[in-house]
Design a protein around this nucleic acid. Structure first.
Lengths: 141, 141
DNA sequence: TTTGTTGTAACTATTGACATTACAACGAAG
DNA sequence: CTTCGTTGTAATGTCAATAGTTACAACAAA
């Protein structure tokens, strides 16, 4: 089990837009070259980021633009946009046996603990925003 | 994207063993009935839990037994045992373009942040042990 | 009208999870 | 030493999700 590469692709995409969009027109083809991916794959991700209102995409003329202050978009926002799992991050086995004292209660007992795990992950992702990532990237120039 | 149901199956399996193994012989067939799963699937999970030294399994005669104090096995141990994720939780897109200032640095920059996310999740899982889960289950009887 | 782009559908390949059948190896009980 | 229930594991099938690709209509501006 792994988080799909859509996630790191989407982060890369956001950083490209943040860094380049005041210099050149950032198209799906351009991003595909930077990420070593495919324009259609990128366009699908752009669609999800747009849906989440993190970016704007100019139809026809082309080009993507950041919609919010860089500080206000975190890894969690991007994760939610492209890899939405809602509350079902942990995939529960279905229909445990109600006759069994364990099977009867496992779901309700476990839910509380697993939700906390997912929340911990979410909170950690919220700690990193695009502003931060972009300036870290620039340190390397 | 979801965590495999092997994980909750394995937790259920551990709880079954913890609860029943002093009363009856806990076989893969028995666990399969409690979890509403398949004996072979359970045996594979038992193999992984045994590999991680969380349980003992009696070949031939049959039956599984807890190997450590219940307090000393956490959700994280089980998670690791069943390989719910490999080494890299986040699946990085490969060969980003080194000519691009973003592509050149993305991997090293992101790694630090993503590792923290994974660690946060791990730490939260370590907070829950089998002892706790078992007594919570018993409260419902 | 032309051009470059987006948005999307359709198709394929690949991978991984899970279910199931089958059977050799094992250990104990008779 | 045979029988029985069980484990361990290989082989196979099914299904869903990811991701790569081709193709093309819709779009906006020059």
């Amino acid at each position: 089990m792994q988080i799909t590469e859509r996630f790191t692709l989407a982060i890369h995409t956001m950083l490209c837009i943040a860094y380049f969009s005041d210099k050149i027109k950032v198209t799906s083809t351009f991003i595909a070259q930077s990420t070593n991916s495919n324009p259609v794959v990128i366009r699908r991700i752009l669609g999800q980021l747009k849906e989440a209102e993190l970016i704007e995409v100019k139809a026809g003329v082309g080009g993507a633009y950041i919609k919010k202050d860089l500080k206000d978009t975190t890894l969690f926002d991007i994760f939610t946009a492209v890899d939405a799992v809602g509350n079902d991050f942990f995939n529960f086995h279905s229909n445990p046996n109600c006759q069994c004292p364990i099977g009867k209660n496992i779901h309700s007992i476990l839910d509380e603990h697993l939700t906390k795990v997912q929340l911990a992950m979410n909170e950690e992702m919220k700690k990193t925003n695009l502003q931060e990532l972009l300036s870290e990237t620039k340190e390397f120039f």
